[in-house]
């Protein structure tokens, strides 16, 4: 993997539209075959586990984007044909935000989003 492959325009994008454009996704269709498994409330905004799952055939790429981070794109994963399109990563979130999973399958883009709450903490029963 050469350093030059890193998709600088996509990672530098500061709006969701720019990030999606840089990834070649335009306006992805929402799909029930894309799933995000994550806690509704983050235990720690610095470490938020997110599992991204695609049930779409021929999934080539899965990306994770955080709407309210300074740079939206957190990660992009490219699958080999034998790789099952289910990846788990841990991301940083500065505040409560929608997290989007973007999937490229058969050359088309699909997405799903979930709100993850980042809270100040304290109190309890």
């Amino acid at each position: 993997a050469a350093f030059a492959n890193w998709d600088k325009p996509a990672f530098d994008a500061k709006t969701m539209d720019d990030a999606l454009k840089a990834l070649g996704a335009g306006a992805p269709a929402n799909s029930g075959d894309v799933q995000i498994v994550a806690s509704d409330i983050a235990e720690n905004g610095a470490v938020v586990p997110v599992q991204a799952i695609s049930r779409l055939p021929n999934t080539e790429r899965i990306a994770i984007l955080v709407e309210k981070n300074p740079n939206m794109l957190a990660a992009a994963f490219d699958m080999a044909p034998d790789t099952i399109p289910e990846v788990t990563a841990r991301i940083k979130m500065g505040q409560t935000s929608n997290v989007m999973v973007l999937v490229k399958a058969d050359g088309k883009f699909y997405a799903a989003a979930k709100e993850i709450k980042v809270t100040l903490g304290g109190c309890g029963g």
């Binding site: 409330i41 809270t119 100040l120 304290g122 309890g124």
Partner: peptide, 25 residues
């Protein structure tokens, strides 16, 4: 205001999975 709103949402979020089960500060 931010603190009060944050705790209040932990108590009154319409989705129980976003609640933490304490009372208001």
């Amino acid at each position: 205001k931010t603190v009060l709103e944050d705790v209040c949402d932990n108590l009154f979020n319409p989705d129980p999975y976003y609640q933490q089960g304490g009372d208001m500060v």
